[in-house]
């Protein structure tokens, strides 16, 4: 499973790079989510190398997935709010 471990680190690194370089908030949100998938991949591929599959990382990843979807939902709602306020404010200035 070395391929998955290397891929995981690459995903984490690339997402981190994009998080810094890309300006659009939507891409930033996607980058955070992809970094999450990279981390989950690392944990699960790591758990798979043992003789008895380790269930603790599985549980951590399930928790992580739910946290990620929550954060994404709020982020998207915040972007919509920003758009609403900017449209409303266009007349002011």
């Amino acid at each position: 499973m070395t391929a998955y471990l290397v891929l995981a680190v690459v995903m984490i690194g690339l997402s981190g790079t994009a998080l810094v370089l890309r300006r659009h908030p939507m891409i930033k949100l996607l980058a955070v989510n992809l970094m999450g998938i990279g981390i989950f991949l690392w944990l699960i591929a790591g758990a798979h190398t043992a003789q008895v599959t380790d269930s603790v990382p599985h549980a951590l990843v399930l928790t992580g997935i739910v946290v990620a979807v929550s954060a994404t939902a709020f982020g998207l709602a915040l972007l919509v709010k920003q758009k609403e306020l900017e449209q409303a404010g266009e007349g002011d200035d």
Binding site: G46, A50, V52, T53, D54, V56
Partner: peptide, 10 residues
């Protein structure tokens, strides 16, 4: 790497 907590959980 370590063998993880798999055995302990089982």
């Amino acid at each position: 790497t370590t063998s993880g907590l798999g055995a302990l959980v089982q």
